[in-house]
Every structure is written in structure tokens, then in C-alpha cells.
């Protein structure tokens, strides 16, 4: 316990750093997945290909990805960009399928009805199909967010500071409390971001039925690559 009281500053600093590292991959992953998911949804031919590639990407161990990316992209091993890109790839891998499924979940009758009223394709997508795909997309986004938060810890192995530091440092110095504090803080950060997303969803989609399944999905997301 003493260790915790003596290191509150360190824990706060690492938590903020962890959040700072988590947000860009979640946001970038989302932005990239919308057009990709749309292509997968819209064109049957690309669907299988895109979703298979996305699925395969997700199976690459994260440490391997951290090591492969720098020589390919010409960036430093220890750079934060390395982490951001690798975790964005994982987020895209999860979210592309979510977005494709979400667009597929929109009732065709509602789509027809928007067409019948005189929505052009562009406007129909952004003001009808995309919002109605929101609940399923959000469920995927929550999985991606939780997964990203847990994956950020692995960055410590290539020297990028995050709550992962508490794992490695605690193990080296055999301070179990430190490791334990790290685990709890990672879970708290994940729950915090997940809760914020859920809240934003209720705010933005007051019309949606409250889904109980999204929580289950979010938990499944912790089975992320190591």
C-alpha cells in the first residue's frame, strides 16, 4: 500500500499518458473504417476480401507489428507514431466489419422510404443510413476502444511510456502492488472511455432502443492480441 501512496503522481501521469496514447488510434480507426466499411457493405465483391484482410490484421501479434512497422514506414522503433499506427490498424481491423455490418443492419424498407421521399444518395447516406447504423457501429467502436486501451500497455516493451510501465517495473522490482495498480488503472481507463462512448451514444441517438448486448460485446473486446 505504501508504494501506491508514494507514487500517486507517477500513477496519475502514466494514466494521462495512457489516455493520450489511446485516443488517436480510436478516432483515426473510426474515421478510416467508415469509408472502408461502406465499400465492404456496398460492393459484394470487395466485402469478402476486405473483411478477410481486416480479420487477418487483427491476428498479427502486436509486438510483431511494432517491430515490422518502423522499417516499412521509415520511422523510429521508439516513436509514439509507431504505436499510433499499429493500434490504428487494429482498430480498423475491428471497425471495418462493424461499420459494414451496421450499414447492413439498416432496414431496407427505411432506405426505400428515404429514396421515395427524394433523398439523393449522398444525403441519404449521411442523414439516414449512417445515423441508423449508429447503434451497431457504436457497439463495435466500444470493442475497439477497450481493445486499444489494453494494447497501449504493450508499447512499454518498445519503450513508449504508459500504464504498462507499472507492469514491467513492478515485475522487475517484484512489487506486486505496483503490477496490481497497473491492472486496475488500465481497467478503469477502459471503463471510463467505454462509459463516455455509451453516454455519447445515448446523447446522439435518443431514438435508439437501449441495447444490452453492447456491454457484452465490449467485454469480449478484452480478448485482444497480446
Amino acid at each position: 500500500m505504501n508504494w501506491i501512496l508514494d507514487n500517486l503522481d507517477l500513477m496519475l501521469e502514466l494514466t494521462l499518458q495512457h489516455i493520450r496514447l489511446s485516443l488517436p488510434p480510436i478516432i483515426l480507426g473510426f474515421l478510416i473504417s467508415v469509408p472502408l466499411g461502406w465499400v465492404a457493405y456496398r460492393f459484394q465483391l470487395t466485402r469478402g476480401f476486405l473483411l478477410t484482410v481486416a480479420g487477418l490484421l487483427y491476428t498479427i501479434p502486436s509486438l510483431a507489428l511494432f517491430v515490422i512497422l518502423p522499417p516499412i514506414l521509415g520511422i523510429s522503433f521508439l516513436s509514439e507514431i509507431n504505436i499510433t499506427i499499429a493500434l490504428t490498424i487494429y482498430a480498423v481491423a475491428i471497425l471495418t466489419r462493424s461499420v459494414a455490418d451496421a450499414l447492413g443492419s439498416v432496414d431496407p424498407a427505411v432506405r426505400d422510404c428515404a429514396t421515395a421521399m427524394g433523398y439523393g444518395p449522398w444525403r441519404r447516406f449521411w442523414t439516414v443510413e449512417f445515423p441508423l447504423a449508429g447503434p451497431v457501429t457504436l457497439a463495435g467502436l466500444r470493442v475497439a476502444a477497450v481493445s486499444t486501451v489494453s494494447l497501449v500497455t504493450v508499447g512499454i516493451l518498445i519503450g513508449v511510456q504508459s500504464l504498462g510501465y507499472l507492469f514491467t517495473n513492478g515485475l522487475q522490482r517484484r512489487i506486486l502492488v505496483e503490477v496490481f495498480a497497473g491492472v486496475v488503472l488500465v481497467v478503469l481507463v477502459a471503463l471510463l472511455i467505454d462509459a463516455l462512448l455509451a453516454m455519447a451514444g445515448r446523447r446522439l441517438m435518443p431514438w435508439a432502443p437501449r441495447p444490452r448486448s453492447s456491454r457484452r460485446l465490449a467485454l469480449r473486446g478484452s480478448a485482444a492480441p497480446e
Binding site: A109, D112, T115, A116, M117, W207
Partner: peptide
């Protein structure tokens, strides 16, 4: 077509209302 549809009313079974509006 889009302009044509805007000047023709359309009512469908199960109302076809936009659930998010």
C-alpha cells in the same frame, strides 16, 4: 428522379417513417 420523387407523395405499409426523426 430525385426531383420527381419530391413532388410525388409516397405512403408505404408499416409507415416507413424514419425511426431517428
Amino acid at each position: 428522379p430525385v426531383a420527381l420523387r419530391r413532388r410525388i407523395g409516397y405512403v408505404m405499409q408499416n409507415s416507413g417513417l424514419l425511426p431517428h426523426l
